[in-house]
Design a protein around this nucleic acid. Structure first.
Length: 208
DNA sequence: TGCATGATGTTCT
DNA sequence: GAACATCATGCAC
C-alpha cells in the first residue's frame, strides 16, 4: 500500500550489483535512491525498473560494442550510467556485473518519500504527487541527476547518489513484462514493476 | 481514457 | 541522415 512507512536501511553493497541485470533489477524494487544536492536530500522508493544485458541484448546501447557514451557500462558494477535521450531528457541507470560486461538497470519510476519540496522546485507545480518521479526522465529530474552524474559510484561512502535497502517487495507484488520504448528484443520480459502502484509509468499489466 | 504528435539534439551508420 | 531506453499536450470518443 502507498504511504507505508519505510525505514532507510543500509547502503546496498557493490556485490549486490555484481549479478545478472534482470536479477538486480527485480531486487531493486522497493530499494531507496537518495540524492544530495544544493536543494537538499531527495529520497525515492523504486517501483519500476528495466534490465539491459549489454552486447548480447539488441535493445541495449552497448549492443554494437563499446562507444564513448557506453564506456561506463563496461566498468565496475555499482556506478551510474546517465545518458541523454531524445534531445531533451536525462535517464539514470545502475551498472551491473563485472568489468567487460556492459549490463545495467534503467531506473524508470519511483515514489518520492522525502524532499518533495526540492522535487517540486525542479518539476513545477503541475504534476500530481504520484507523477513526480514517474518515468525515467522524470525520475532523473526529481533526483537532480543530469550528465554530470555519469560514472558516479553509488556504493562509495559519502557519494551524492546512494541506494539504500528498503522493505523487500514479494514475488506476488512483482509484475514482469516487455520493456518500454524499444524496437528490438521486444520479447524479453525485463521490465519489472510493483503491482497496482500509482507511481508506475506506462502499461501496468504484463501481457499488454 | 487513449492515441497521435511535436519538441529537440546526441550518437552512430 | 536516421534512429532514438521520452514527455506533455491536444483532440477524438
Amino acid at each position: 500500500m502507498a504511504g507505508t512507512e519505510v525505514e532507510a536501511g543500509r547502503r546496498l553493497p557493490r556485490s549486490f550489483y555484481d549479478r545478472r541485470p534482470d536479477v538486480v533489477a527485480r531486487d531493486l524494487l522497493g530499494a531507496l535512491v537518495e540524492s544530495r544536492t544544493d536543494d537538499g536530500v531527495v529520497r525515492v522508493r523504486l517501483v519500476e525498473v528495466e534490465a539491459y544485458a549489454g552486447e548480447s541484448d539488441a535493445a541495449s546501447h552497448a549492443w554494437r560494442g563499446p562507444t564513448p557514451r557506453t564506456r561506463v557500462m563496461y566498468g565496475p558494477p555499482g556506478r551510474s550510467y546517465v545518458y541523454f535521450s531524445y534531445g531533451m531528457h536525462w535517464c539514470l541507470n545502475l551498472v551491473c556485473e563485472g568489468e567487460g560486461r556492459a549490463s545495467a538497470v534503467l531506473l524508470r519510476a519511483g515514489e518520492v518519500l522525502e524532499g518533495v519540496d526540492a522535487v517540486r522546485a525542479r518539476r513545477g507545480p503541475r504534476p500530481p504527487d504520484r507523477r513526480l518521479a514517474s518515468g525515467p526522465a522524470n525520475l532523473a529530474v526529481a533526483l537532480g541527476v543530469d550528465g554530470a552524474w555519469d560514472g558516479l559510484s553509488v556504493v562509495a561512502r559519502g557519494s551524492a547518489l546512494r541506494v539504500l535497502e528498503g522493505a523487500p517487495v514479494g514475488d506476488a507484488d512483482v509484475v514482469a513484462g516487455p520493456r518500454v520504448g524499444i524496437t528490438r528484443a521486444v520479447g524479453t520480459p525485463w521490465r519489472f514493476h510493483v503491482a497496482d502502484n500509482p507511481c508506475v509509468s506506462g502499461p501496468r499489466r504484463a501481457g499488454g
